[in-house]
Design a protein around this nucleic acid. Structure first.
Lengths: 117, 117
DNA sequence: GATATATTGAACCACATGGTTGAACATTCC
DNA sequence: GGAATGTTCAACCATGTGGTTCAATATATC
């Protein structure tokens, strides 16, 4: 497996802040300028700019500078990497369902037996 | 939607450190004591203990104290929550494939046309 | 050229982080 | 009881974090 480690560090760190997650939410609907990303949060422009840079360094958005406007676009490949990491644990959170399913199957079997008897 | 925000903060923060991700990797294979979690990393016992607490507070592991031994078990529900959050973006990282597919289809169509001509 | 707009940079603050060390605690073993 | 084992606590350190403010830069508009 490739050495994704530092990348995952950056992505998970970027996602660990609710402001940044909300920014990604906005970017999911449409491309945004820094200003548009800043205004929903009662926060200084410079503060928002820092958050955007964290997202950018994590590879979660791409910035296109057109004149004085910085247009940001969601870039989800790194999210995919992070998701791939998480899915290695998928069967752990499905186990309860699996167990339940097994129980139901066993119940059916015993009921079928009873009917035969 | 429920207010998962603080939980997601904690989970993503916990995942943003490579040592902690590796610890989860070990826990995925078998339950471990704090000592077993600490030894693979050239790190003090107390340091490992801190990491474990971060994972515990994020709800990613459960600790069962039996005498002087603290047995840790992976608990993946919170991973599932984080994964659910990420999958809202799933179509973004599938878009490239979709686009490629569309291009291939278009190419086929135009080739078919040429053959007709 | 002057002014308004969009963004970053730099300096700062309070606080959290990842790490250490050494002492303390609790339990098990001899 | 005494010694070894497994773990945490407390204090400390260097660095990073999320936030601010104010100045600087670059572009657009009048």
């Amino acid at each position: 497996m490739v050495e994704h480690s530092a990348r995952l560090d950056a992505v998970f760190h970027a996602l660990s802040d609710p402001t940044r997650r909300a920014m990604l939410g906005h970017l999911a609907e449409r491309d945004c300028t820094i200003g548009e990303l800043a205004t929903p949060f009662s926060m200084s422009f410079a503060g928002a700019s820092k958050h955007v840079r964290v997202l950018e360094r994590a590879g979660l958005l791409r910035r296109r500078i057109r004149g004085r406007i910085h247009q940001c676009r969601l870039q989800a490949e790194r999210l995919a990497e992070a998701d791939a990491w998480m899915r290695r644990y998928e069967h752990f959170w499905n186990d309860r369902l699996d167990t339940l399913e097994a129980l139901l199957r066993a119940e059916d079997t015993s009921r079928a037996k009873k009917q035969k008897d």
